[in-house]
Computed example of a mutant assay.
Amino acid sequence: MSFYVKATIIYISFYLYIRLWVCRLLVDNQKLKRGVLVASDLMTLVMPITVFFPEKLPYLLKILMLGAGYSWAAIIVCMVPVGLCFEPIRWGMKLLGNGIRVPRLKIFAALCLISIVMTVGGYINATSPIVKEVDFDLSKGSKDAKEYRVVMFSDLHAGKLMTSDRVGGVVNMVNSLNPDIVLMVGDVLDDHDSEVSGAVEELARIKAPLGKYAVLGNHEYYLGNDWSLRMLENQGIEVLRDSAVVVDNRFLLAGRNDFATMRGGGIRKVLNNILPEENKLPVILMDHTPYHLEEAEQADVALQVSGHTHNGQLFPFNLVVKRLYEEEYGSYRKGETHYYVSCGVGFWGPPLRTTSRPEVVLMKIRI
């Protein structure tokens, strides 16, 4: 059973639960209930249609349906935990008898208001990236240390909904920071439409005298290593695949294959096998998924930059992500190794964010 089939079954199951809640809340308003159910049933069909029959739809219609369908899916998924929290209260009130009158219509109106605020506010937030500035001193007290402006971003997810205009806006933001070097830490591409729309070509405009580098994230592996690699390299981006390069004779920049490569029979090398034995330079490591952070510490990496988590992107998924990863967002330190896990600059699925602002990270690094 494919991922999309499994996801659709879960999606429909979640919707049936929400549908049950609508029936409960509007039991005394049959006309309103019928209208709401018809509208919500139709909305629920939008995403499966766009997922399973994208080639049957005109491009602009497909984009509009995807945006609407993913947003509706986000509302469904986020409202299910709310409903589950109220179940014990509902059962308690039922056991107490009919003495308590439940303001069903007001509760329904409140849930609709929450959904609207989440959708509108989440969209504005998701499409308004900010610059996050952080400082790292990797010089170990050296008197001839030099400061570099390193601009890093992850999880751009260029594709259907992350259009060329939006990608172009991120590129303009990156260039405005006058970076010495630019690091793209995986999931830069989301689907093949990034080529059709011209979104990927916007990355060619990034300017950095010391180069622009990337690693592949799990989504690039889903799209096919060769295609993703070709797309990025055509924009003048050097992709590090379990390899390392010396930058400005000051530091070693390394990039790892993502864990996703192993699902298709690929190889993810041991970190110590990527770093040259004779290396004496500080190491900056790009690793898309922040699993096993102790590996970087054991290999004496000075700084690891990662992404992937989106900090959950939507509540309550940030609570889930927090349990899955040792560090899900922000700066962290283990021993002498610094870490920065970005929440990403784009979005995956619904064009909504409620748990953090999308970010381009300006790192001022002394080496």
Results as ranks from 00 to 15, higher is better:
S13E: 05
A204L: 07
P179S: 08
V185R: 02
L42K: 03
L216E: 08
G265C: 08
W72E: 10
V150G: 00
D226N: 04
I75H: 01
V360H: 09
S342E: 02
N125C: 15
V345Q: 04
S356G: 02
Q30G: 12
H219V: 07
H219I: 11
V215H: 00
M184A: 03
V131Y: 10
L303G: 00
I181A: 05
M363G: 08
V247I: 14
D191G: 08
I284Q: 02
A260K: 14
G255I: 04
K6S: 12
G217R: 03
A39C: 10
R34F: 02
V77A: 09
A214D: 06
M118A: 01
L95N: 13
R101H: 13
K364L: 13
K322H: 14
I107C: 06
I284C: 07
A7R: 12
L183R: 08
D287V: 14
N29T: 12
V38C: 12
P358K: 06
C343E: 08
T261S: 15
Y11D: 13
P276T: 10
G99H: 09
S154L: 00
I100L: 14
N234I: 10
G169T: 03
C343Y: 01
M93L: 15
P350A: 15
T354N: 01
V80S: 01
G236T: 09
L319Y: 11
L285S: 00
P48W: 04
P316T: 09
V239A: 03
N311M: 00
G236L: 07
V80Q: 03
A74V: 14
L319H: 03
Y329L: 11
Y291H: 15
G265L: 11
G159F: 04
V320M: 04
G307L: 01
G307F: 01
D190H: 13
Y329S: 05
T119S: 13
G224E: 09
D226Q: 04
S128Q: 12
S164E: 13
S13A: 15
G211P: 02
M118V: 07
R263L: 15
G69R: 06
S176K: 07
M1P: 12
E87P: 00
L324Y: 13
L138P: 08
I9W: 08
H219W: 10
G67L: 06
R241E: 00
V320S: 06
R366G: 01
F347P: 03
K146V: 14
Y221A: 14
G121F: 06
I107Q: 03
A199E: 05
K160F: 07
Y4E: 15
F108C: 14
I75M: 10
E202Q: 12
F259V: 11
Y339G: 04
I114L: 11
R366N: 07
T261M: 13
K322P: 09
N273Y: 09
I116E: 11
W91V: 08
F86C: 15
E327G: 10
I63T: 10
E133R: 14
M79Y: 05
I284S: 04
